[in-house]
């Protein structure tokens, strides 16, 4: 187990090197001039003298490979560079927003599971029942309408019509207690959770159905084991593999921030930072975010693989 984790951590190093090179090249190919986009306005063009100064300051006058190796060298020492736009260190800009992103992602995931687990299990047990169709309908709607739709509909009903919740988040942590955080997070989390709950419900239902048809479950049932213990003791655990995979993918995705939801609910997460820095071609920040994303994904995927082994002991990680 520990050697496995160690090996995965070692695998991370070449992965990060590859992704940093890829993102570097991709940004090189991407049109858009950071100097113009950051220093200029729609009205104002930047003068050649000024451009030369800025290029020197940002190191854009150096050849591609020199820039790349400088970046790698600095990143290895934990310095991701400074943002072109704000002149702040990239690492601290990312870390400033990361907790808010994690809190939103966590809340959304919790909410999604609260919906999908009971709904999915019931749908499977009561195959072709009303609950089952309800679950299918929820899933269908969940993936067919965009997040901005849910977000705006929530704000229009809960804030504008009913005055239950404030339109924008004033806090994004529990520094003022649970309730203010809950009030701030419930709408963005719901709008994110609906889409996730959709896929999860369908997954849970389907793999539960699969498992319930397996011989060992039939055997357990025929042996006269209590239905509850059959379902929660045997079936559910074995049905979890695809569900965990899907959840993992979604958690990983949300680590990169949920741009639309963050914008609608004014949530100060990493997604808005990413979009802003891409629109300004703030190369250091984009590179930093990509690396952080990659690390998050690798951690999530490592966790998933460990959970696989825990759920199904026959899966041996070290092999």
């Amino acid at each position: 187990m520990w050697t496995y984790i160690l090996r995965r951590i070692l695998q991370a190093i070449p992965t990060l090197l590859v992704i940093s090179f890829l993102i570097f090249s991709l940004l090189y190919l991407t049109p858009g001039d950071p100097i113009e986009l950051i220093m200029g306005t729609e009205d104002e063009q930047i003068s050649p003298e000024q451009r030369a100064i800025v290029e020197r300051e940002w190191g854009l006058d150096k050849p591609f490979l020199v820039r790349y190796f400088n970046f790698i060298f600095n990143a290895a020492r934990g310095d991701l560079g400074t943002s072109y736009v704000t002149s702040k260190p990239v690492f601290s800009s990312i870390m400033e927003r990361y907790p808010a992103t994690l809190r939103l992602a966590g809340s959304a995931m919790l909410l999604a599971l609260l919906i999908s687990l009971p709904l999915g299990i019931t749908a499977a047990l009561k195959h072709n029942s009303i609950i089952d169709s309800l679950a299918t309908a929820l899933a269908t709607i969940g993936v067919s309408l965009p997040k901005f739709w849910f977000g705006l509909v929530l704000i229009i009903t809960l804030s504008l019509k009913l005055h239950w919740l404030p339109t924008t988040a004033t806090v994004n942590d529990m520094s003022q207690g649970f309730w203010p955080f809950f009030k701030a997070v419930i709408m963005p989390a719901s709008s994110l959770a609906l889409g996730m709950a959709a896929t999860q419900t369908r997954m849970i239902r389907s793999s539960m159905l699969d498992v319930l048809n397996q011989d060992y479950v039939r055997y357990a049932r025929s042996k006269g084991l209590k239905e509850r213990s059959v379902i929660y003791g045997h079936a559910l655990k074995n049905a979890l593999i695809p569900v965990i995979t899907v959840i993992g993918g979604e958690v990983g995705g949300m680590m990169g921030g949920a741009v639309v939801t963050e914008s609608i609910f004014s949530w100060p997460g990493i997604g808005r930072l990413a979009v802003n820095s891409i629109s300004k071609r703030d190369y250091p920040t984009i590179q930093g975010i990509t690396l952080v994303m990659c690390i998050s994904y690798m951690i999530v995927n490592l966790l998933i693989d460990i959970i696989y082994a825990w759920v199904d002991p026959r899966i041996r990680l070290d092999k």
Binding site: I19, L22, L29, G256, A274, I278, I286, T290, M293, C294
Partner: peptide, 21 residues
């Protein structure tokens, strides 16, 4: 799997803009 990790962590926007360009 590390390759898929890499593909997953690319900002979608950047891929889109680059392909378009």
């Amino acid at each position: 799997m590390r390759f898929t990790d890499i593909m997953l962590s690319f900002p979608f926007l950047i891929i889109a803009i680059a392909i378009m360009a």
